[in-house]
């Protein structure tokens, strides 16, 4: 589904990614862990199409397409979704209005019929119950005045409504208390299926207690230094990252 080969990227003259390789197949869940500043969020943003990064080397194919030439909205319409670490506030723009515009833009791209307001609302309300969200969040402006936890739930709500093929989760667990974490994790688990893939960027092992990954990767110094199964995450939690860095240097 996603194939990243020897990706090099820099921002403001500084090299962030230095030869990153990653293969993700449909049905898989990957966790990317690593110390601060290792390039985890950069990777998520580059995949979603954020501008401001200079790709100096390498290639990324997504469902057989050259991902790096696609505009962010094209990527989204082809089933990619990024749950933001810090979702932005958009004053005056109704939360459900944005979501409906996104939903219908994606359907239009697929040649499917647009959903009208009534049907769409019913769909969203059902998904909101899963996320244990208050219905009032629908009529508020996008993320405006939302608590940290509400913002994260809202991201996952959007994901459940848009049903992406590839979900990228950028530090979705940060700032969540344990109850909220469980709700968010169950939302993500609900999306998992043989046709979809999930790539989670996270600092902490605790998210992986609720969302069991098939693969765990250590990203440091702009490269994947080590890959393993979920036991690697447990080991990282216990030993930190230094030993991986030392191993790679050796």
């Amino acid at each position: 589904m996603l194939s990243i080969k020897n990706l090099h990227a820099r921002v403001a003259g500084k090299d962030i990614l230095k030869g990153l390789d990653l293969e993700v197949q449909a049905g898989e869940t990957h966790a990317i862990m690593g110390p601060n500043g290792s390039g985890k969020s950069t990777l998520a943003h580059i995949l979603a199409g954020r501008e401001g990064y200079e790709i100096t080397h390498g290639s990324v194919t997504y469902l057989g397409m050259e991902l790096l030439t696609m505009a962010p909205e094209e990527r989204a319409r082809e089933g990619m979704f990024l749950a933001f670490q810090y979702p932005v506030e958009i004053p005056g723009v109704n939360n459900v209005y944005l979501l409906k515009a996104a939903y219908n833009a994606i359907r239009k791209h697929r040649g499917e019929e647009q959903l009208d307001a009534v049907d769409f609302l019913a769909l969203v309300k059902a998904k909101m119950q899963l996320m244990e969200m208050d219905a009032s969040l629908l009529s508020r402006a996008v993320n405006e005045g939302f608590s940290g936890g509400e913002k994260k739930r809202n991201e996952i709500l959007q994901m459940l409504v848009l049903e992406p093929k590839l979900a990228l989760l950028d530090e979705t667990d940060s700032g969540l208390d344990i109850d909220a974490l469980k709700v968010v994790a169950s939302g993500i688990n609900r999306l998992r299926s043989p046709e979809r893939a999930v790539v989670m960027v996270t600092h902490y092992q605790r998210l992986l207690d609720y969302i069991e990954p098939d693969f765990v990767h250590v990203l440091a110094g702009g490269r994947i230094l080590k890959s393993g199964d979920k036991s690697l995450a447990v080991e990282l939690e216990r030993r930190g990252y230094d030993w991986v860095l030392a191993e790679a240097a050796a």
Binding site: G49, A71, P72, R77, I90, N94, A102
Partner: peptide, 26 residues
């Protein structure tokens, strides 16, 4: 902001529609 535009675009909404949405909201 670039952040607002990117957020909308990453949801499948075109730049043009995103700008209209943000300005109308304002």
């Amino acid at each position: 902001s670039e952040d607002q535009l990117f957020y909308c675009r990453s949801r499948g909404i075109s730049t043009e529609d995103a700008v209209n949405m943000i300005v109308s909201g304002f």
